[in-house]
Design a protein around this nucleic acid. Structure first.
Lengths: 139, 139
DNA sequence: GGCAGATCGTTTGTACACGCATGATCGCCC
DNA sequence: GGGCGATCATGCGTGTACAAACGATCTGCC
């Protein structure tokens, strides 16, 4: 290995920068809904599932119980998600989307699509396809 | 656009997962030095530069002034970095690595290399090269 | 029925990451 | 030399992210 450690050739460093850049583009593209990428991901899954347990949702979007707890708290505070209970299992918090969530998610998805395109814009269409395929395999 | 919004096909979601995975692998590979990926990146650059201004270091490793301030505070608390002052510019904090930093960085770089390899291990050697090239272009 | 281990959600503590505001200092240009 | 915009480091507030510990509850197995 050479004497100079090439920090800028390491996956970790490049992933951190790419992730930061996308997050920044996402917040720019978020016209008025003001959802963070994390909140958006959680909300999309809640809408998709109609009814989910909190930790189960966390697993679907790669957030540990402590993290999803905070995210859900902010979504419920904004009236996008409601918490109910399963009488069959009194440990769980069952989440469901509100009407507001259904309305918001349509426009937010368009914003997310723009952020997606902007983040990938330095690559050609063919390169984007390759990149996404490889990135998926790293997950 | 289809009715089902495919969250798992979006760069942002995939980048977040890949970044999390690498961070986890990095902490596993960090035998005893107990540096986070962020702290490691900052320390590598300080060693590389011998003397850097705090914000200048932040720009080199993609951290804003508020973030690099906390990272440097933790590195100085561990005796890996010392803060001096430039009499020519009394606003700045000039950072330099300690002896301990030079000793630590050698073993830490080996750990980082292992984390790098582990994170990329789902891909073949050829795919890794392609992936890194594309990822660099997204920065 | 009752115990043991697993799972659920919460809390606490630490570490990034950023926007915004602030006070100190610098550079430049008049 | 004086003023003005830019830069430096810091502080506060908010939002991810995770480990560890906790009480509550469920499940399986005896």
């Amino acid at each position: 290995m050479s004497d100079a450690f090439a920090l800028e050739d390491h996956v970790g460093f490049l992933l951190r920068k790419a992730h930061q850049r996308h997050a920044s583009l996402f917040l720019d593209a978020a016209c008025d809904h003001a959802l963070t990428p994390t909140q958006f991901a959680a909300l999309v899954k809640v809408v998709e599932c109609r009814r989910v347990t909190q930790n189960h949702l966390g697993r679907k979007v790669a957030m540990d119980p402590a993290t999803i707890q905070g995210v859900v708290k902010r979504l419920t505070a904004r009236g996008l998600v409601v918490r109910t209970h399963d009488p069959m299992d009194r440990r769980t918090a069952v989440l469901a989307p509100t009407e507001a969530a259904h309305e918001l998610i349509a426009t937010a998805a368009a914003c997310a699509q723009r952020a997606h395109a902007a983040a990938l814009s330095p690559l050609s269409a063919a390169e984007q396809a390759v990149f996404l395929t490889l990135l998926r395999r790293m997950g």
